[in-house]
Structures are given as structure tokens and as C-alpha cells.
């Protein structure tokens, strides 16, 4: 996928081109956000906030081919901001109506997935959803690629153990 032409247009202010770029990544963005956050609303907010920031700062994107990693980096900041709010606002925590989780038959897997810490969630979801490489994930999470690889295998190992 060559993003360069659309990135160039988006840098000139074309929302249409940006929407095309976005179309390539939005499902991953949403699912990654959804997995790391409590509700569909929070996930939607994180994605739309990230998109707005990304569009407004796309001029800073030097290499169009890093678009995927770049927008994911912005999303990860948005997700972290939301997660901080959860800690700060304990009232919201008690509001069960705001927390909804996946509906899926495999409750064991669901619970195992839910139990992961937020960084692991991000790493896992980027890896399995978007097929991001450990290098790209490293860029987003500000870790070394090797660390990501070992974390990822530990996460998978943990899930496997919990499910057996």
C-alpha cells in the first residue's frame, strides 16, 4: 500500500485523501482502542480525537510509508489519556452502565484477554489485529523491538496457560 500520494494531498488539506488513508487503518484503530478502553464511546472518542490530531499534524509526517505506525502512536497517546482518566475519576469506575465488554461465547478467552495490563493489550491488539511488526509496535510503545517481541511471546504464553 503506497500512502505517499494521499499523504501528500492530506498535507495540503484534503480531507478526502485523509479519509482514504484513514479507511486503511480505522478498523484496527477502533478495535485496538476498544480492547484497551472500557466502552464503545471511549473507544470512538479516542479514535476520533486521534484522527483530528493526526489530520492537523500530518504535515509533520515525513515518510508517508510510516503512516500506519504514526497514527497508531497518536492513538496510543489518546488511549493512555483515557486510561489516566479512569484512574483519576473513580466515580466513573463505579458506574457500571459505562463499562461494557465484549460479547462472545468464549468467556474464558474473553476474561483472559481482559485481565491483561494496558500495555500488553496494546501490544497484543496491534500485533494480532493490524499485523504490526514488533518494530512498528516498538515505535508506538517506545520500547525496543526486542522487548516487544519478548513481551508478545510472554503475553501469548500467559494466555495459553490461562486457557489450558
Amino acid at each position: 500500500m503506497d500512502f505517499s500520494e494521499d499523504v501528500r494531498l492530506a498535507q495540503k488539506g484534503s480531507t478526502e485523501a485523509f479519509a482514504r488513508l484513514y479507511a486503511e487503518v480505522y478498523k484496527d484503530m477502533y478495535h485496538i482502542a476498544r480492547y484497551s478502553l472500557r466502552s464503545t464511546e471511549d473507544a470512538s472518542d479516542a479514535v476520533s480525537d486521534a484522527v483530528l490530531d493526526a489530520f492537523c499534524s500530518i504535515k509533520k509526517l515525513r515518510d508517508p510509508n510510516t503512516f500506519r505506525g504514526w497514527i497508531m502512536k497518536i492513538l496510543s497517546v489518546k488511549i493512555k489519556q483515557k486510561q489516566k482518566e479512569y484512574f483519576a475519576d473513580t466515580e466513573e469506575l463505579s458506574d457500571d452502565s459505562k463499562i461494557s465488554s465484549f460479547s462472545y461465547e468464549n468467556t474464558e478467552l474473553k476474561e483472559a484477554l481482559e485481565r491483561l495490563d494496558s500495555e500488553s493489550k496494546l501490544i497484543l491488539s496491534m500485533s494480532v489485529l493490524g499485523g504490526y511488526s514488533s518494530d512498528e509496535i516498538a515505535g508506538v510503545c517506545r520500547l525496543k523491538a526486542g522487548t516487544v517481541r519478548s513481551k508478545l511471546s510472554r503475553i501469548k504464553e500467559k494466555l495459553r496457560l490461562e486457557l489450558t
Binding site: 480505522y26 478495535h31 480492547y35 470512538s44 465484549f102 478467552l109 494480532v128
Partner: peptide, 25 residues
């Protein structure tokens, strides 16, 4: 399996590209 679970939920309509474009506009 993990992917299917994580992708289980439909992306909200407001995040569809054409709606995002509208939002950006």
C-alpha cells in the same frame, strides 16, 4: 481466535471513513 474476539464488535458508524471526513471538514 484472539483476532476474531477483538474484531467481534462492529465499528461504530460515526467512525466510518465518510463520517470521519465529514467530521474533519
Amino acid at each position: 481466535e484472539v483476532r476474531e474476539m477483538l474484531e467481534n464488535e462492529k465499528v461504530p458508524e460515526k467512525l466510518e471513513p465518510e463520517n470521519i471526513k465529514k467530521m474533519l471538514d
